[in-house]
Design a protein around this nucleic acid. Structure first.
Length: 996
RNA sequence: GCGGGUGUGGCGUAAUGGCAGCCGCACCAGACUUAGGAUCUGGCGCUGAAAGGCGUGGGGGUUCGAGUCCCUUCACCCGCACCA
């Protein structure tokens, strides 16, 4: 019987679908294990071979843990709200729901063909109202919460209102907007409903607030910081600008410290944790107030509400080096600080920087711009007059939007000062040669000079002393700033969760839980309205109607893509609960994700938000875990490997004056030659060309051939190239234009293609689909090969060439179980034969092979080293083949070991071995050290660390005995050349090193 | 610029501080073949006829012993990037 993977795989996939051996139990005495993949956005392109990489690894883990006696939760679902389906809807008018459903269907088919052990009964889709009902519910919880700094957690808004009623807001220690005004209990009672609502907005964790946001005109929506890369939108690459808008936001900044701290408890890669630390960007420094001088100012300007500018600095030690103060163009005080003679210049500058897109601003980092306001502040210690400038190198959103510039000791201030000819007062003596005219001395090293009470101190001591003095003078205090900004939550798009808010008298109210889900309404077009309102404004009769005579407007924004993915890991625990997002009983049972696998592109987006929501839900007591996933692995990206053909154009002139234009395809080595030494090759080339043309057109008489365009490369479909050698026949059939292609090949007739590593994409013809591989080689081979390619976390190009190695391995394994028709222990070359497994007792060597393999495979899986386990399986099967071993006692445990990797073939063999039921439920074998013990060990004998010879010795010898035995050997004495060794190192079962 | 990571045959890669190159691809030779994108056997780091010598990006160090640890330097990849 031949190894027919097509039949076998179909059979077992149908079996799994019917018998559901991978169904997770919610009530089990076994320990639990939760393996999660980052669920995919179902795109129209389907899966390419890169996508399943992480899924295969997690599937191996899930199956392995099941064998090891765990109750395994291994679910899958779809992050099915998102931009591409909506963009497609705008172009075609097709409802995104339909597109999404089609794509999901295709994804599911592709995944099923790979043989994953997902518990599909728990599938979730973020765009399903039954799911987003709870996304909306969580939003409402966040809306109804504030962050109490005293308890250091989120609390229900009612506790805050109670406090306002009792004491106003003066005693409260909450995270709130910077511009929140103080009020008393009496004030609060006197406030109108609207005023109360507006005030609470300063405290709510989901709030409506005015802020500078990333506005993407092409997409017609705002974007969060992590959705903008290099000043353009991550999806689609459209320009993004800064715009002041009223938007729903999430006060993730309240969690900055906790998000930072608990990173230390996680088993994630250092680089990922570093990314998050950087993104959170904690910075300890000092806030410091500079008094504004009256001179030159219209002091009666009503907009001038303060007489101070507050700055944030991490270097208070350099306070005596301040030579100017710079404000962000958007800083509130800019208009009122601008004197009459500078008004035009400043206004021009501010307008210009506001209109510059983020991209332009970033592209111009090296270009310095700024303008003087005409006003001054007073130095807090020297009383010296310090000019106030405006510069767009200062960001409005960070710190106070104002900096004290110390050009001698800060690179950016230095550039600004040099550009505008400002002073560079030096206050630190560097500990090595330094040219202050060229660059700033930014190191935190050196002795303070020209700094009054700080003179003579080193930087560290000076920072401490400076903060003390600043606090004494009551002009500032130590402060911590975070780079992390609040996350914009509203999107002016159609295909997302409606935000469950309605407006009554301009006051936003949350819907009641009983009114959820707020279902996404139908619209005629998926575009903004004429008035620039979001697409939801197009919905007919989509109003909140709590009673017959009340009608209110709904919020028209939808939620961002990350909303649904910020809690999906919890929904899998209780996917069909219609009363809660998940029951406490089940979230307490399944707790955290034990292993989370996904791409590193989610390092700062999804992985921050899901941590944030997890902490929030814990604060309110809905769950008992603080972090969503303990262990996280980023699988590497699989890149494409593109192949090229080289084309040149030739004009052929016949004797009777006619001319023909031919496209000639030349092999890579000829192309390379041609591009290096043109002259001599061309001549030869023309000769070859001539003969080719004569072959093609025997009837014509050649006069001349001229190359009208030198060779250039064209992408060729990687599926018609093997080992970089083009299948010329298939190439001719690939496309009409290549029908009559003329090839100039290598001498052996091969046409060699060029190679480049690029991203996998349709236009580069380098996409390899798992379907094709599965069809040709089978899903088990695909799974093994993806693992065999290299370490999981490493990025690597896909190259189908090596796959025959693992395909051959499975065939070889199969043959161990069958008797060849001609008799003899091992089946014949084609794998024909009858099933033939012997019940004979295994030999010592066979047992050693098996138990060595069990040990290695177990160790490999536990450390996620899947590539090495594949090669260990190969070694095992090679050894068993050499031993002609067909013994049940060996093969049966081996099949279980392999089943997480190659589930189909092992199910089939398991059945043939006489078992009923899925192998997935069999117990993983344990290795027995006894079988691994050798009677003897071959010692490498090295001299001064250089290996010279081997000596086989009984394994039971002690170090002293080994030394004695080794030294007695003649061949050892030969290397000693009569000298006495200085030292002999004996490491039992390892090595002997003789130092001469 | 800052942070993280990686450098080993023609290629993908492997080596708890202990014989560098396991396993596979490609390649070479042979067997079976009308044929082979099938199968089997053998070879395959470089150099050398061999004995041997040299080899893990470069330089240095620790160690009886370094691909592995430390310092330094170069190259490449990824992430972030005016965050005061």
């Amino acid at each position: 019987m031949e190894y027919n993977f097509t039949e076998i795989e179909k059979k077992w996939q149908a079996y799994w679908a019917k018998e559901k051996p991978f169904k997770a139990s919610d009530d089990s005495t076994k320990p639990k294990y939760y393996v999660l993949d980052m669920f995919p956005y179902p795109s129209g392109a389907g899966l390419h071979v890169g996508h399943p990489l992480g899924y295969i690894a997690s599937d191996i883990m899930a199956r392995y843990k099941r064998h090891k006696g765990f109750n395994v939760l291994h679910p899958m679902g779809y992050d099915s709200f998102g931009l591409p389906a909506e963009q497609y809807a705008i172009q075609t008018g097709q409802h995104p729901k339909i597109t999404t459903e089609q794509n999901i269907k295709r994804y599911r088919e592709q995944m099923d063909k790979i043989g994953f052990s997902f518990d599909w009964d728990r599938e979730v889709r973020t765009s399903d109202p039954e799911y987003y009902k709870w996304t909306q519910w969580i939003f409402i919880q966040i809306f109804n919460s504030w962050y109490n700094n005293n308890s250091n957690k989120a609390e229900d808004i009612s506790t805050l209102i109670k406090e306002f009623e009792a004491n106003g807001n003066s005693k409260i220690n909450a995270v709130c907007d910077d511009d929140t005004k103080q009020f008393s209990a009496a004030d609060w009672k006197g406030f109108s409903e609207k005023e109360k609502s507006d005030l609470l907005m300063h405290y709510r964790i989901a709030y409506l607030g005015e802020a500078y946001v990333n506005w993407c005109p092409a997409l017609g929506t705002v974007l969060a910081n992590d959705e903008v890369k290099d000043g353009v939108s991550e999806r689609g690459g459209h320009p993004v600008e800064r715009k002041l808008m009223k938007q729903w936001s999430m006060r993730i900044t309240a969690y900055a410290q906790r998000l930072l701290e608990s990173l230390d408890t996680l088993d994630w890669t250092e680089s990922l944790k570093e990314s998050q630390r950087y993104w959170i960007g904690k910075s300890e420094g000092t806030s410091l107030k500079f008094k504004i001088q009256d001179a030159g100012l219209k002091t009666n300007d009503s907009r001038l509400t303060t007489d101070q500018i507050e700055v944030f600095t991490t270097r208070p030690d350099t306070i005596f080096g301040v030579s100017f103060v710079t404000l962000a163009p958007e800083h509130d005080l800019v208009p009122s600080l601008t004197t009459a003679e500078n008004k035009t210049a400043v206004e021009d500058y501010v307008t210009k920087s506001k209109n510059r897109s983020e991209r332009e601003r970033q592209a111009d980092v090296t270009k310095i711009s700024g303008v003087f306001t005409g006003s001054y502040v007073e130095h807090p210690f020297t009383g010296k007059q310090i000019p106030i400038w405006v510069g767009d190198y200062v960001l409005a959103g960070y710190g106070t939007g104002a900096v004290m510039a110390v050009p001698a000791h800060d690179e950016r201030d230095h550039k600004f000062a040099k550009h505008f000819g400002l002073e560079l007062p030096q206050v630190i003596e560097p500990n090595k040669e330094h040219d202050f005219d060229k660059e700033a001395w930014g190191e935190k090293e050196g002795k303070l000079i020209n700094s009054d009470f700080l003179n003579g101190l080193d930087v560290k001591a000076a920072i401490k002393k400076a903060i003390e003095e600043i606090e004494n003078k009551k002009i500032g205090k130590g402060k911590i700033n975070f780079r992390l900004r609040d996350a914009v939550f509203g999107r002016q798009r159609y295909w997302g969760e409606p935000i469950p808010i309605y407006y009554k008298n301009d006051i936003p109210y949350a819907l009641n839980e009983s009114e959820l889900p707020l279902v996404l309404p139908e619209v005629d077009k998926y575009l903004p309205t004429e008035d620039g309102e979001p697409p939801l404004a197009r919905a007919k009769d989509w109003k909140y109607k709590p009673s017959a005579n009340e009608t209110y407007e709904y919020e028209l924004s939808t939620m961002p893509g990350w909303a649904g993915s910020s809690w999906y890991f919890l929904r899998y625990m209780d996917a069909h609960n219609s009363k809660e997002f998940a029951s406490k009983k089940l979230t307490d049972y399944w707790k955290q994700v034990d292993l989370y696998i996904g791409g590193s592109e989610h390092a700062t987006g999804h992985l921050l938000y899901v941590r944030f929501w997890t902490k929030f839900l814990k604060d309110l007591g809905h769950i008992n875990i603080d972090e969503p996933a303990q262990k996280l692995i980023n699988q590497g990206m699989i890149q494409g490997r593109s192949n090229f053909v080289y084309r040149l154009l030739a004009d052929i002139i016949t004797k009777d004056g006619k001319s023909l234009h031919e496209e000639i395809y030349i092999s890579k080595t000829i192309h390379d030659l041609l591009s290096s030494k043109e002259g001599e090759t061309s001549l030869k080339l023309i000769q070859i060309l001539e003969s080719k043309i004569k072959d093609r057109y025997p009837e014509i008489e050649l006069h001349n051939i001229r190359i009208s365009r030198g060779s250039y490369q064209l992408h060729v479909d990687v599926n018609i190239v093997i080992n970089d050698i083009l299948n010329q026949e298939k190439f001719r059939n690939w496309r009409d234009e290549y029908k009559n292609a003329i090839f100039i090949t290598e001498e052996n007739g091969d046409y060699i293609c060029g190679v480049e590593i690029e991203k996998m994409s349709k236009s580069k013809y380098n996409v390899v689909s798992p379907d094709d591989i599965g069809e040709k080689f089978g899903a088990d081979t695909l799974r093994l090969y993806e693992m065999f390619l290299g370490p999981l976390e490493q990025s690597k190009p896909w190259n189908t060439n090596g796959i025959t190695g693992v395909a051959g391995f499975l065939k070889k394994l199969w043959r161990l179980f069958f008797l060849s028709p001609s008799g003899g222990g091992v089946a014949g070359a084609t794998g024909e034969g009858v099933f033939n497994v012997s019940d004979e007792a295994p030999t010592k060597a066979e047992l050693k092979t098996l138990h060595k393999t069990i040990k290695k495979i177990t160790e490999d899986i536990e450390r996620f080293s899947f590539n090495t386990s594949v090669s260990n399986f190969m070694i095992c099967v090679n050894e068993l083949t050499d031993a002609k071993c067909n013994k049940r006692a060996i093969l049966e445990p081996l099949v279980i070991c392999l089943s997480p990797y190659a589930p189909h073939i092992t199910e089939e063999l398991w059945e043939k071995l006489g078992h009923s039921g899925s192998i997935a439920l069999a117990t993983f074998p344990m290795h027995n050290e006894e079988y691994l013990i050798d009677d003897s060990f071959i010692y490498p004998i090295s001299f001064n660390g250089k290996m010279r010879l081997n000596i086989e010795l009984p394994a039971t010898l002690t170090s002293a005995e080994i030394e004695k035995e080794v030294m007695s050997r003649e061949e050892v004495q030969k290397y000693l050349e009569g000298k006495t060794p200085k030292k002999i190192i004996v490491v039992p079962k390892k090595i002997v090193n003789i130092v001469i």
